[in-house]
Lab assay of single mutants.
Amino acid sequence: TEEYEYTDEQQAREAAREWREKGYTVTIEEHNGRWRVKTG
């Protein structure tokens, strides 16, 4: 599992979409105004 943090929701969603296209399972969670994208 890798985790990436973004301050911008749009960036987080874009990144998540790219990971999904590569076949990863992706979770996005908002935490204190930051967006965490977890792949695994």
Score class of each variant (00 low, 15 high):
residue 4 Y to P: 04
residue 11 Q to S: 14
residue 21 E to S: 09
residue 2 E to H: 15
residue 28 I to A: 02
residue 11 Q to H: 08
residue 13 R to K: 11
residue 10 Q to I: 11
residue 15 A to Y: 04
residue 40 G to D: 13
residue 7 T to D: 15
residue 3 E to D: 10
residue 32 N to E: 10
residue 2 E to L: 14
residue 31 H to A: 09
residue 14 E to N: 11
residue 25 T to M: 11
residue 15 A to I: 08
residue 27 T to W: 11
residue 40 G to Q: 15
residue 5 E to W: 15
residue 5 E to H: 08
residue 25 T to R: 09
residue 8 D to I: 05
residue 21 E to T: 07
residue 30 E to V: 10
residue 28 I to Q: 01
residue 19 W to A: 05
residue 29 E to A: 07
residue 38 K to T: 14
residue 11 Q to I: 08
residue 21 E to N: 10
residue 28 I to V: 12
residue 27 T to G: 04
residue 8 D to F: 05
residue 6 Y to S: 02
residue 20 R to S: 09
residue 5 E to I: 13
residue 30 E to W: 14
residue 2 E to M: 15
residue 25 T to V: 12
residue 27 T to P: 00
residue 20 R to E: 13
residue 4 Y to C: 11
residue 13 R to W: 09
residue 20 R to P: 00
residue 16 A to D: 01
residue 27 T to H: 09
residue 23 G to R: 02
residue 23 G to I: 01
residue 33 G to T: 02
residue 26 V to R: 01
residue 23 G to Q: 02
residue 1 T to S: 12
residue 4 Y to Q: 07
residue 13 R to E: 10
residue 35 W to V: 01
residue 4 Y to S: 06
residue 21 E to Y: 05
residue 14 E to M: 09
residue 13 R to T: 07
residue 24 Y to S: 03
residue 23 G to M: 02
residue 3 E to Q: 10
residue 20 R to A: 12
residue 7 T to A: 14
residue 1 T to C: 12
residue 22 K to M: 09
residue 30 E to K: 10
residue 32 N to Q: 07
residue 32 N to W: 04
residue 40 G to H: 15
residue 40 G to E: 14
residue 27 T to F: 09
residue 14 E to G: 05
residue 7 T to P: 13
residue 11 Q to W: 05
residue 17 R to T: 07
residue 21 E to I: 07
residue 29 E to W: 13
residue 9 E to V: 08
residue 32 N to I: 03
residue 3 E to N: 08
residue 5 E to A: 06
residue 5 E to P: 11
residue 33 G to H: 11
residue 23 G to V: 01
residue 18 E to C: 10
residue 31 H to M: 10
residue 38 K to F: 10
residue 31 H to K: 11
residue 26 V to N: 01
residue 32 N to P: 02
residue 5 E to D: 09
residue 11 Q to D: 11
residue 16 A to I: 04
residue 27 T to K: 07
residue 9 E to D: 03
residue 6 Y to M: 03
residue 27 T to Q: 09
residue 25 T to N: 11
residue 26 V to W: 01
residue 26 V to S: 03
residue 19 W to S: 02
residue 24 Y to M: 06
residue 14 E to C: 10
residue 38 K to I: 15
residue 40 G to F: 15
residue 31 H to V: 14
residue 2 E to Q: 15
residue 3 E to M: 14
residue 10 Q to S: 11
residue 13 R to C: 08
residue 36 R to V: 15
residue 30 E to T: 07
residue 7 T to H: 10
residue 31 H to N: 09
residue 39 T to R: 15
residue 29 E to P: 00
residue 22 K to E: 04
residue 36 R to T: 14
residue 4 Y to V: 08
residue 2 E to K: 14
residue 12 A to Q: 00
residue 3 E to V: 15
residue 40 G to P: 05
residue 9 E to Q: 07
residue 6 Y to D: 01
residue 21 E to D: 12
residue 39 T to P: 09
residue 12 A to W: 01
residue 30 E to L: 13
residue 15 A to F: 07
residue 1 T to D: 11
residue 33 G to A: 03
residue 21 E to Q: 09
residue 20 R to L: 12
residue 15 A to R: 07
residue 33 G to P: 00
residue 39 T to V: 15
residue 14 E to T: 10
residue 11 Q to E: 14
residue 11 Q to T: 13
residue 32 N to H: 07
residue 28 I to N: 01
residue 28 I to D: 00
residue 12 A to C: 05
residue 15 A to C: 10
residue 1 T to E: 13
residue 26 V to E: 01
residue 19 W to D: 01
residue 1 T to A: 12
residue 3 E to R: 07
residue 36 R to M: 13
residue 20 R to F: 09
residue 19 W to I: 04
residue 30 E to D: 06
residue 20 R to M: 13
residue 24 Y to T: 03
residue 12 A to S: 02
residue 15 A to Q: 07
residue 10 Q to L: 12
residue 16 A to M: 08
residue 5 E to R: 05
residue 35 W to D: 00
residue 22 K to I: 04
residue 39 T to E: 04
residue 18 E to N: 11
residue 35 W to F: 06
residue 32 N to T: 04
residue 27 T to I: 12
residue 17 R to W: 06
residue 6 Y to W: 05
residue 16 A to N: 01
residue 8 D to T: 14
residue 14 E to R: 11
residue 9 E to M: 07
residue 3 E to T: 14
residue 36 R to K: 13
residue 28 I to S: 01
residue 18 E to F: 15
residue 9 E to S: 04
residue 36 R to Y: 15
